[in-house]
Amino acid sequence: MVDPEQYFYRGLSDHNTIGNVKMIAPWTYNSDGVGMGHDALVEDTFIWANDDSFKVYTDNMVVRRCVVWQAQNGAVFQFGWWSGRDMQKVRISDVDVIHTDWCTFKGNNCHISGNDAVIDLAGDTKSFKVSDIVISNIRIEGSCPRLVYFKMNPASTGSVTNMHFNNWSVESQPTHDSLHNEIQGANKATASNWTFTNLKIGGHCINSPSQADFSLESHTNNIKFTCH
């Protein structure tokens, strides 16, 4: 699949499968990778997107054994944009991110949008019922400006809980710039029970937020970094 005007593939009905597909040449913004309905499977696929590569929006989504080239715009795994997010039991594993180009052509003083991170919450989503999300065995090559940017709108309600990030390997992350990894809830919405297990940056396993330049802001609870 080549040179999309917007999505490479958007199949919002349930039980769709994408396998052994190459998606390349996203020359325009808004060229998202895939958006799927419930019980979707994406496997053994290469995505070079210039917007969000995976819309993580629906129950029982499975992504496995994929390769991503994230161009100058968008997230690798996007949780936001729509007004509400009601989603459980997502399993993502064995994804190689070979480029994150948000800062590649911007020189030393890089400023990027709230839409640009590996794990991202963009747009104006205000209602949350999200739980049981497991994202494992993610390998990120090169310098990654931002891993997580998940800041809820102040008017949000609900919860995002039981998010588990296992065995992530990041080649490098800038530490002396204006970009930070950020997680934030709201007065009536919490981000709780998130675990980062065996998150390695530059070969070093992270066991505290500060070691990976994480800012855990208001209305977050029980967010842990552990090494085994």
Rank of each mutant, 00 (worst) to 15 (best):
D124S: 14
A25W: 11
K224A: 10
P145V: 00
G114C: 08
H228Q: 13
I92P: 00
F150N: 09
Y7A: 03
L216H: 04
P174S: 03
A186R: 02
S159G: 06
S169H: 14
N222Y: 03
W48G: 02
G35K: 08
N30G: 03
E217N: 14
K89G: 05
S208P: 03
I140V: 13
V76T: 05
H38G: 10
R10L: 08
N108E: 14
Y7W: 06
K126F: 03
H38E: 15
I133N: 02
Q78T: 04
L199R: 02
H111G: 03
R10W: 01
H180T: 07
K224T: 14
D120G: 15
D132I: 03
Y149T: 08
H111I: 09
W82L: 11
S127N: 07
S218V: 12
T161A: 06
S143R: 11
S93E: 13
F8V: 02
N108L: 10
T28N: 13
P145H: 05
K129R: 14
Q184Y: 02
I133V: 15
A189T: 12
P4I: 09
Q70C: 06
F150R: 07
C103Q: 02
N16P: 04
G19H: 12
N137E: 14
D124V: 12
K106N: 09
N221S: 15
T104H: 12
S31D: 07
F214M: 06
V76N: 00
G185K: 02
T220P: 01
R91C: 02
D96Q: 11
H164I: 12
D14V: 07
N166C: 02
E217H: 10
I133M: 10
Q72M: 06
V21C: 12
A191P: 00
Y7T: 02
A71P: 00
N60W: 04
S113Y: 00
C110M: 04
R64H: 04
S215Q: 15
N115P: 00
S131F: 08
H111M: 09
